[in-house]
């Protein structure tokens, strides 16, 4: 988008970034740009390479090849400058349970070279935003998962970063807390005027972003606004269930020239105008239709039409379960 480039300044630019582990290419020659002040989402299944990419940009991992520049600083040559202008919320908890909320933030402020006086004000201000001010002298040990996550977001902001990275910020949280976390994220973007770079495997969450990059098997397969990505899936999504899916799918492909996907014993395909299509389809269908529905496309459908598969929900949920178990164990200690 060369026209937009003049208007928006680029804060992160990534060129052919690659990370190889022993016999696995986790991130394969990816290139993209993040604009100042936007919420940029990395969407993809577990193991797609999201965290590896973030870890490289955040200087925790060295890239095998390629280049990335953040706020004018090269991520391999100017590590400390890069670190100073980013805030991070990791996928797994990273607080010191044996310190109080306030002490965790003070540690962070000191290590990022913030003057004590400024730090004091800043800590109070940020604790207020994430609604933890009345718990500031409690040990983190006694915090719930949602509170810990909020404290981590607060911590990531103490040193006035240019970019805040959130790696799966809502993983393992209940739906209400997830919504709350999203409210904070949006609110913070407005107040602090920062760029937010987040990863998620939840489609519904990705729709909160200004722009999304869809990543799978270490490669970027699409990058655009949620609306534009949804437009790539033309029209509406029809889901049909019949007694004989195979023969119906052939019928749809031959007669209407549509690509069909199978899942859950159902057939799914796209049409331009579902209101007019459905009555005609039912009239002309040779098979018995058990159920039929039409809906607007979601990012899930985008992912499906781009990769030919659904975001692996199953593996995602078992991973979630495992993480939760680990968290419970940690909290007990």
């Amino acid at each position: 988008m060369p026209i937009e480039r003049g208007k928006l300044s680029v804060i992160i630019s990534v060129e052919k970034l690659t990370k190889k582990f022993k016999n696995l290419i986790a991130v394969n020659q990816i290139s993209f740009e993040v604009h100042e002040g936007e919420i940029f989402g990395f969407l993809g299944p577990n193991g797609a390479g999201k965290t590896t990419t973030i870890n490289m940009i955040c200087t925790l991992l060295s890239p095998t090849s390629g280049k990335a520049v953040l706020n004018g600083h090269n991520i391999t040559k100017e590590r400390n400058q890069v670190r100073q202008c980013i805030g991070l919320v990791f996928q797994d908890p990273s607080l010191d349970d044996w310190l109080t909320a306030k002490e965790n933030l003070e540690f962070h402020a000191l290590i990022y070279n913030i003057k004590r006086k400024t730090a004091k004000k800043r800590i109070d201000q940020i604790l207020e935003i994430v609604e933890l001010k009345d718990r500031k002298n409690d040990l983190v040990l006694n915090f719930s998962g949602g509170m810990k996550r909020r404290l981590e977001i607060a911590r990531g902001l103490i040193h006035y970063p240019k970019v805040l990275f959130l790696d799966e910020p809502t993983l393992g949280l209940d739906p209400q807390t997830r919504n709350k976390v999203w409210e904070y994220i949006k609110d913070l973007k407005e107040r602090e005027n920062i760029t937010i770079f987040l990863t998620t495997h939840y489609m519904d969450e990705a729709e909160n972003c200004d722009r999304i990059s869809i990543i799978d098997m270490g490669k970027i397969i699409a990058i655009d606004t949620p609306e534009n990505l949804k437009k790539k899936v033309m029209g509406d999504i029809i889901t049909v269930e019949t007694t004989d899916n195979k023969s119906l799918s052939k019928e749809i492909e031959n007669k209407y020239g549509k690509n069909v996907f199978f899942y859950d014993n159902k057939i799914q395909f796209e049409v331009d105008d579902s209101e007019r299509f459905i009555p005609q389809f039912i009239r002309e269908s040779k098979e018995d239709i058990l159920s039929i529905s039409a809906r607007k496309p979601t990012l899930d459908d985008v992912f499906l039409s781009l990769t030919g598969k659904k975001i692996r929900d199953e593996s995602a949920s078992t991973m979630d379960g495992m993480r939760k178990m680990i968290r419970v164990r940690r909290m007990r200690r």
């Binding site: 955040c58 200087t59 925790l60 400390n80 990791f90 908890p93 607080l95 962070h108 911590r155």
Partner: peptide, 14 residues
């Protein structure tokens, strides 16, 4: 093991 090392490693100190 408890994740805090990352907070330290990503901080701008050597």
């Amino acid at each position: 093991e408890f994740g805090f090392l990352k907070e330290i490693l990503v901080a701008p100190i050597s």
